[in-house]
Nucleic acid binder design. Structure first.
Lengths: 179, 179, 179, 179
DNA sequence: CTCTAATCGAGACGGTACGTCGCGTCTTACG
DNA sequence: CGTAAGACGCGACGTACCGTCTCGATTAGAG
């Protein structure tokens, strides 16, 4: 498990998938391509991931983990606006990565992973909003994903703080406890 | 073009796809299944649609066309709340159909088609909101799709008017002209 | 049967097939091509011939009929050498046609038709050679076809009389009654 | 290339084709049948042969190779009559195989392969006969194939030595050096 | 510092769906 | 109201991936 080679291979596979996502759609990427691009034998792929989707899930989960690790502390400290700004700044700093994740036909998986996180977060809080938490999460996540992917698609993107402001106004505020 | 057989075949294919979407995911449906289920030769499928996705696009476009034909007139008559209610009522009346369209892994195509409509609609109006129209459309559509698909997934769905109220509050009001 | 249009169509189809045989192999010719090239509706083809092969059979039979009509009288008048010369001369005169028939991957059908004729001819004669007539015919026909197709393939073909001489020596003489 | 599985698969495919040739015409045999009959995946067929014809070519070449390996030494030792006898004996010993090869609508491929061999053989010798060697080969091969296939078609076949005698008289002698 | 077991590369293989092509039948819209 | 146009069913084709499976050849890390 701690074998150097194993970690090397998995890391290489994730990186390879990301690279390829910059060039083509997820569906148009074959396992063989990923393996080749990672300088890894075709068979070896399956030694680490049971399928292409599993690799993508792993990749998305890892990156979303990093994102939330950056953002959640701020959010929890009762500073949702700051959290929005932190999120946008982080995404901007990793622009190519998040471009691939949000515009490479993979947005739905990212949405799914984000929802998972969101559900975990809201489940610890008491019911607070006017909507069922499940629905609130879904809508907020949908808006976040849509907004970010729109942002990343723009040839001349807005500055992060302006996006953060819109993000707060459209994805967070409408679903906060009051109202 | 006006050939009876042609119209028959296409209609049968669309219906077959819809039927199958009630049972399984779009990706798990094969062209051969659709053709068989439509009592149509496998080759004939391609005589009408270049691919499975093309059929789905056509199907989605047609259904969304019907939906907007119901809703738009009301919306244009300066009654957005009534339009929301009309939309929800229409979707409820066609529940199985829209369930398939919004929860069968096909939501992204529906979103795409809706966006097309939305863009056409907004392009005729002067810039009005605080957001770029393109972005406003995208967010509104995302929320609509998410909300409706959540609604249709519920075992004991809310009444249409309550959904319509949420719909107006979360998808329409935030993006209307006055910020 | 005597309908002018019918004869026109069939003639056109045969000619079209011949034309196409000059450009490509029989197997690479489609019924649609033949019909188009004959300025005849696709369906019409089948009104006259049940299949592509039937057309070819008809064509071959007709041409071989003409050939034997030229050659047989001479052969029957106890002048086999003259018959060979006549055959070669006739083939030479119709070079493009016979090139198509003998080098277009259709040689086996021509062989078959020739055999039919040959069998009819020998069946009227008493057993005469040292070989069973069936076998004698088969060998003679094989040599004739092979020799002629070789001849027609040559870029600078031999004069007809030289071919006729070889033809007599290799295809006729060895299977004549004596020996 | 030396992979055991590869050799197994190819061998199985050749055998399967031969088996099927005993039952039906080459054109009526589908690749799927061959693969199934060889207990080999359909796709695997194409991993070894680019087409049905390629398999047949390989098969024919291999069998003709064996045949000539038996016959040529004798022929080269200035004993053409003995070579004829050897050939007929060999064919008779492998009757089912050669029946399939010469009467399954495949004769033309066998002819082609034989011609290749024949050309190689004659190209090493000085021009000797009264005919161009190319032509001599073609005629001799045509007669050989025709004679053998006639022989194998017979319900009560001649003894091999009688066929050999005819073979020598009609296919070899007429084309030997002295005219 | 070795040796043993985990890891890897290579690639043959069975399988499923794909989209194409040609045949020959059957229907329909048009002249 | 018949016939030419062409929609259709059928079935084989060859392709592209998938994921499984053996093989040896390396190579890490425990003794």
């Amino acid at each position: 498990m701690a074998d150097v080679r194993v970690r090397r291979s998995r890391e290489d596979l994730r990186t390879a998938l990301l690279d390829l996502l910059n060039a083509k759609t997820f569906d148009d990427i074959t396992v063989r391509e990923i393996a080749a691009h990672a300088n890894v034998g075709y068979t070896t792929f399956f030694r680490h991931y049971p399928s292409k989707d599993a690799l993508l899930d792993d990749l998305a989960a890892k990156e979303i983990g990093r994102l939330t690790a950056h953002v959640l502390p701020i959010y929890d400290s009762k500073d949702p606006v700051g959290a929005c700004l932190a999120m946008c700044a982080y995404v901007q700093a990793q622009r190519p990565l998040w471009s691939a994740l949000l515009t490479g036909g993979v947005a739905s998986i990212v949405r799914e992973e984000l929802l998972k996180r969101s559900r975990e977060a809201t489940s610890t809080q008491p019911e607070s909003g006017s909507l069922p938490p499940e629905l609130g999460s879904a809508l907020a996540v949908a808006v976040i994903v849509e907004l970010l992917s729109w942002w990343l698609r723009q040839p001349q993107p807005w500055p992060a703080d302006r996006v953060a402001e819109v993000l707060y106004r459209t994805a967070i505020a409408p679903f906060l406890s009051r109202s």
